[in-house]
C-alpha cells in the first residue's frame, strides 16, 4: 500500500521488497476474511432452507460491507485524531507501524 512507502529508505533488498508485498497481501486477505465472517454471521440465518441468497440476505450483505468500510474509516480517523491530540510533538507514530 502506497501509504507505507516513500520513507526514502535507500533501496530495499529483494527480500525486503518481497516481504513488503507479502505483508500487503496479508493485510488485504485479512481484511476480506474479517468482512466475510462478520457479514455472513450477521446476514445469513442458520436455517438453510434454500441454497440461494434471497433478496434480503443479499441486500443485508451489501449494506453490511458498506458499513464495515465506514467503521474502518471512522476508526482510522478517530485513532489519528487521538494520536495528534496526544503527541503533537511526538514524531509520526502511525498505527500499522512499518
Amino acid at each position: 500500500m502506497s501509504m507505507f512507502g516513500g520513507f526514502g529508505r535507500p533501496q530495499p533488498s529483494s527480500a525486503e521488497k518481497i516481504a513488503a508485498a507479502e505483508a500487503e497481501m496479508d493485510l488485504v486477505t485479512d481484511m476480506f476474511n474479517k468482512l466475510q465472517q462478520a457479514c455472513m454471521k450477521k446476514c445469513i440465518p442458520k436455517e438453510y432452507r434454500e441454497g440461494e441468497l434471497n433478496k434480503g440476505e443479499g441486500v443485508c450483505i451489501d449494506r453490511c460491507a458498506a458499513k464495515f468500510f465506514d467503521v474502518q474509516m471512522k476508526i482510522s480517523e478517530l485513532l489519528q485524531q487521538e494520536a495528534q491530540a496526544k503527541g503533537a510533538g511526538g514524531g509520526g507514530m502511525g498505527f500499522g507501524g512499518m
Binding site: 466475510q36 455472513m40 446476514c43 441468497l53 440476505e57 450483505i61
Partner: peptide
C-alpha cells in the same frame, strides 16, 4: 440437504461480499 444448501449459500454470499470488497478497495 442442509449441508449442500449451506455450502451453496456460503459460496453465493462469499461471491457477493467479494464484489463489494473490491469496490470498497477501489474506492479507498
Amino acid at each position: 440437504g442442509c449441508v449442500s444448501r449451506c455450502v451453496k449459500k456460503f459460496m453465493a454470499g462469499s461471491e457477493r461480499i467479494s464484489q463489494r470488497f473490491q469496490e470498497g478497495q477501489a474506492q479507498m
